[in-house]
Simulated scan of single mutants.
Amino acid sequence: MKVIIVGGGIGGLATAVAFHRRGWQVVVLERAAEFTEVGAGLTIQPNGLRALDAIGLGERLRAGGLADPLAGIRSRRGDWLVRNDVGSLKRRFGSWVTVHRAALVDLLRAVVPPDALRSGIEVQHVQRDGTVRHSGGTSTADLVVGADGVHSVTRRSLWSHLPGPRYVGYTTWRLIAPPQRVEGSVETWGRGERFGHVPMPDGRIYCYVMANAPAGSRVGLDELRERFARWHHPIPALLGSAQEEAVLQHDTHELPMLPTYVSGKVAVLGDAAHAMTPNLGQGACQALEDAVTLAHAVDTLGVRAGLEAYDRTRRPRTQLIVRRSRQAGAAAHWTSTPLTVLRDAVLPLLPTRFFARSLIPAYTWTI
């Protein structure tokens, strides 16, 4: 049996590993000149690690160093708005790991046969019958998997009548700062903007910044430093230590709900199926879940029944996570002063279980 995977990012490579381990012939078509990941840090949460366990890679990632879940949310002055019981979260759900995105891609790529990885191939159209037209010609397979991101050619080929990605109103910067002392993983909320920092095992600090902005607008590091100069420590120091070339900026998109993730012999997964806001940090984790679930279903039940089972299992779950993620970050992007003052006064009064409700469905997944 043969599977063609469109896209060689985290979701695509995880899919390749999952099918290769089940004895399938695997072909991965990647538009870029090489298989790598442009990005910064990435936190793999307990459900994502369990997905990696299913393809034999969870312990390898854990061996690089464990991380803590989000310690909580602060105001721009440094007051705690939300405090998480980090120890309880780890005891209840398992491990967290923070890595560079490229390191996870390298881990996955190393397990896929080199002759299965075909870079520099631009896919132009995908058909329901498993035919893929691309810059190198035409290929066919028993199954085609579209793991080609938020602007997926696979999705456009088969669901061309449906709306495309929607800009959610804020842009995101990501960077890695040099090693320095920080108080765990913390997110800070202002008015229409926020800043998060996450320690990495090698001592460096993964930082992300989100701010309301028109689509397509671009802001450099100097402007970010000025914008966050009066926020609490260590935010100014982290931005001050970063290098301009280390900063990546991308507009944030969400994908409208698809009525199905499958069509004929084709399935979509990851951002191609359910691109979501990064507020719960679940994008990569959901792609990993998709990959192992799809491989298990199709290899166990056959292509047709397996695709039906994949869609029946994954679509409700991922669309729930999309909604929860949207809701989780909404209050951070309020711009009204009275509303943000009220938010900062009310959040510390809410019980911890109020916030846990949005997290439990994500963390408790098993295949």
Rank of each mutant, 00 (worst) to 15 (best):
P316Y: 08
G264R: 08
A309F: 10
G302E: 05
V268I: 07
L221I: 04
P278H: 02
D311V: 14
A242Q: 06
L239Q: 13
G281Y: 02
V247H: 05
L238P: 08
R324F: 14
P278F: 02
H296E: 15
R225C: 00
S217I: 01
T300G: 15
V247A: 09
Q327W: 14
R326S: 13
A328V: 08
R218K: 05
Q286D: 10
R314Q: 12
S241P: 08
W231L: 00
C285E: 11
N212G: 07
L294W: 00
L238Y: 02
Q327E: 15
H232Q: 00
Y310C: 10
Q319W: 04
A330L: 12
H233R: 10
A246G: 07
A305C: 13
P259C: 09
A295W: 09
S263M: 07
L288Q: 01
I321D: 11
V262A: 02
G281L: 05
R312H: 14
P234R: 03
Q282A: 11
V303T: 12
N279H: 13
P278N: 02
Y208A: 00
V247C: 11
G216W: 04
L269Y: 03
D299Q: 15
L294A: 04
V219G: 04
P234K: 01
P278L: 01
S325Y: 06
V247G: 05
A273P: 00
G264D: 06
A246M: 09
A246T: 08
R326C: 07
Q243H: 13
M257D: 14
Q282Y: 07
L239P: 13
R230T: 02
A291G: 02
Q249P: 05
A328M: 11
E244N: 12
T300K: 14
E254Y: 05
A215L: 08
P214V: 00
E254S: 07
G281I: 03
Y261I: 09
L255C: 03
R227M: 03
A272H: 08
S241A: 15
L294S: 05
T252I: 13
R304E: 15
W334M: 12
F228R: 02
V262T: 04
D311N: 15
V247M: 10
A267M: 03
P214C: 00
V266Y: 07
L307P: 01
G270T: 01
T300I: 13
L255S: 04
Q327D: 15
Y310T: 07
T277R: 01
R317S: 11
V303C: 08
H274Y: 00
E254T: 06
G270N: 01
V219A: 02
Q282I: 02
H274D: 02
V219P: 05
N212P: 04
C207W: 02
L258F: 09
E226R: 10
P236F: 00
T293F: 13
D299F: 10
H250W: 12
Q243Y: 09
E254L: 04
R230I: 00
A275T: 01
E254A: 04
G302S: 10
A273D: 09
Y208S: 03
A272Y: 06
V268R: 01
W334F: 13
A309N: 13
V292M: 12
P259N: 08
G306Q: 10
L294N: 06
H233C: 08
A284S: 08
A309P: 07
R227F: 01
R314T: 12
T335Q: 15
M257Y: 10
N212H: 05
L288N: 02
H296C: 13
G329Q: 12
A309E: 14
I235A: 06
S241R: 10
E254P: 04
S241E: 07
